[in-house]
């Protein structure tokens, strides 16, 4: 049901029945290792290219989530997902393997919450009973497509971010128990004129702030409604900016826990990740692995996940364009069936 200007309120309370996360070895050495379902020893995942490895991880995460929810593939009505590769090949090729009717989306790193929002809407409106949503990214395939060859010895500035290797999926249905998806806010594309692809955090922060404000306005809520508000992959630089922008716009963000997935997945002291993590899989594996585990343990009752995406292409920045960004927010609540 439309609420306000750009938000959906889900009255049927679609539920996160099961989630699955698959990550690469570098993420496995990070502080959230215990929250991931599968950690691969090698970033090639027994494949002969990174692109194939990325796809394989999404296939595995898809299979695992369906299995954990106790379904078979033919019981899943739709699969919604996207990734960073040109023509979202990782996801559509994974959909070829999964054989589930497929809706491909592109929201760059916001694909995790974009797919979850659409999946929830389908379940909420009765357009589907069980929906699989998921996304994936791979550090090396992203470096190859967007930046330089991975073995090229160039120096990254402190604002650069490290693309997460992994895949995260979720099965949404109308199960009795489990975290419920209560609302979603679809973001506008915001471009504040940042053109440096090594400073994505600064480019994406205004989009995150815009969507957070839109969410509170549409649902007439304040930050303290949530125990936790988490952004997707702003990392250190973008997160600081988002904090300042929210304060400037008089959003009392300090009344809740405000965090960023890109700052949680790696160990800054031991892992050379500059500003922090990024990529489609960043918000997906942190939310579907770590945060939902904490929610099931009772640490959080209500959380708002704001996944941010930079909608640039390698071509667009070479032609001198600035970076348009987007953020989608989904609220997940645990608890008393009301």
């Amino acid at each position: 049901m439309l609420k306000g200007h750009q938000s959906w309120l889900f009255n049927q309370k679609p539920t996160i029945h099961a989630t699955a996360t698959v990550v690469g070895p570098f993420e496995g050495r990070g502080p959230l290792a215990n929250d991931f379902d599968r950690i691969h020893d090698h970033s090639m995942v027994d494949k002969d290219s990174w692109e194939k490895a990325e796809r394989k991880m999404l296939e595995e995460a898809g299979d695992l989530a369906i299995q954990k929810a106790g379904y078979s593939k033919d019981q899943i009505h739709f699969f919604i997902g996207g990734d960073l590769m040109n023509q979202i090949t990782s996801t559509s090729f994974a959909a070829r393997t999964l054989g589930i009717p497929f809706l491909g989306i592109f929201g760059a790193c916001s694909s995790s919450m974009e797919s979850l929002a659409i999946a929830s809407l389908l379940v909420d409106t009765g357009a589907a009973d069980q929906v699989l949503a998921g996304t994936c990214s791979h550090n090396s395939s992203a470096e190859k497509q967007f930046r330089y060859p991975t073995e090229y010895g160039s120096q990254k500035p402190p604002t650069a971010q490290y693309t997460v290797t992994g895949a995260g999926t979720v099965v949404v249905d109308r199960a009795k128990d489990g975290p419920r998806i209560t609302s979603a806010t679809i973001g506008r594309v915001i471009d504040m004129g940042i053109s440096d692809p090594f400073n994505m955090g600064a480019a994406m922060a205004p989009a995150a702030v815009d969507t957070i404000q839109a969410h509170f306005r549409d649902l007439q809520r304040a930050p303290d409604y949530y125990d936790l508000i988490v952004t997707g992959d702003l990392a250190k630089v973008g997160f600081e900016i988002a904090n300042e922008l929210l304060q400037k716009h008089n959003v009392p963000i300090d009344r809740t826990q405000f965090k960023d997935c890109g700052m949680m997945i790696y160990n800054y002291e031991e892992q050379m990740v500059q500003s922090g993590g990024s990529g489609c899989a960043c918000s997906a594996v942190v939310t579907y692995g770590h945060l939902l585990n904490q929610m099931r343990e009772g640490k959080w009752k209500r959380m708002l996940v704001v996944a941010t995406g930079a909608l640039l292409s390698p071509l667009s920045y070479q032609q001198g364009e600035t970076i348009p960004c987007i953020a989608h927010a989904v609220s997940i609540e645990m608890g008393e069936s009301s």
Binding site: P157, P158, T159, D191, M192, G193, I194, N199, A202, A205, P206, K236, V237, E240, I241, E244, L245
Partner: peptide
């Protein structure tokens, strides 16, 4: 750039850790 964008650039620059 619009004045809002220029203002934001200044804000973002402030948070950018120098090389």
């Amino acid at each position: 750039m619009t004045p809002v964008q220029q203002e934001y650039q200044a804000l973002a620059k402030k948070h950018e850790p120098p090389r």
